[in-house]
Amino acid sequence: MTLLTPISSSKTLTDIALLLARIGLSAIFILAALNKIQYFDGSAQYMASAGLPSSLLPLVIIFELGAGLFILAGLATQLSAILLAGFSIVSALLFHFNLADQMQFILFFKNVAMAGGFLALAAQGAGRYSVDAKLLKNN
């Protein structure tokens, strides 16, 4: 282990870090989907205010919940992570692009940061503590 690679020089630490990354990255999408279900009408109005048809809301909920659960479990992680990175960027552009508003500025770059995290996860894979690892072990 070196000062420059304290995690990547240890397979165990890498796998723990990937698990924690998957938990953190998935939580926001799982919770967002549940929030959209709980406040369905308000969420539909918010989508409509951004110029999107509110009829897309059920698809957004299914995507956020499904992809979030896939990331959490480490199932089809690289594909799910790439899709969520794209979703994060599109959401930033559609809902948070008023960069003159400080809160929207923060939310915009939060989405950009999440996309970066998902791309790093896509590049690295889910790690040992994942469904992907179990499936690949059987091949």
Rank of each mutant, 00 (worst) to 15 (best):
I30P: 01
A113P: 08
T77Q: 06
L20K: 09
L107G: 00
A76T: 15
T14E: 11
L52R: 08
L119F: 06
L94G: 07
A85Q: 02
G66A: 10
L13C: 10
A113Q: 07
A73K: 03
N138P: 01
A21P: 05
S8P: 01
G66E: 09
Q38M: 12
D132T: 00
L34G: 13
F29S: 01
L65W: 10
T12N: 03
F70E: 07
Q104D: 11
A33H: 04
F40K: 08
A122H: 11
P53L: 13
T5N: 10
I71T: 09
L75T: 14
T77H: 03
E64S: 07
A50W: 01
F29V: 04
L34Q: 12
Q104M: 13
M114I: 15
S49H: 03
L121N: 03
A48Q: 10
I61M: 04
N35R: 11
L79E: 02
L31W: 05
N98C: 05
L3P: 02
L25V: 14
V60N: 06
I28Q: 10
L19W: 05
D15I: 13
K137G: 09
P6T: 13
I23C: 08
N98A: 07
Q102K: 11
S43M: 12
F40W: 08
L20E: 06
F118V: 09
V90T: 05
M114T: 01
N139A: 08
L75C: 13
P58R: 14
K110R: 15
R22V: 09
F87L: 15
L13N: 05
G116N: 10
Q124S: 09
L65S: 02
I61H: 02
A123W: 12
D41M: 12
A123C: 12
G24H: 13
K137E: 12
L84A: 07
A92V: 02
Q104R: 05
F118A: 05
L119D: 03
L84T: 11
S8T: 15
L72C: 04
F40T: 13
I89T: 07
A133W: 03
N139W: 03
I89F: 03
L65V: 14
K36H: 11
I23A: 09
A32D: 04
A76H: 12
A48E: 07
F109H: 03
A92W: 00
S55M: 10
L72K: 00
K110V: 09
Y39H: 08
I23Q: 05
A17Y: 02
N139D: 08
L13A: 13
I106R: 03
S10Q: 05
D41T: 15
F95E: 01
L59M: 14
F95P: 00
A48G: 03
A48M: 06
L121V: 15
K11V: 12
L79K: 01
G68F: 05
G74L: 08
M1D: 12
P6V: 13
G125H: 02
G66T: 14
A76D: 08
L52N: 08
T5W: 03
G125Q: 04
E64P: 00
I106H: 01
L69I: 15
A122D: 11
L4W: 11
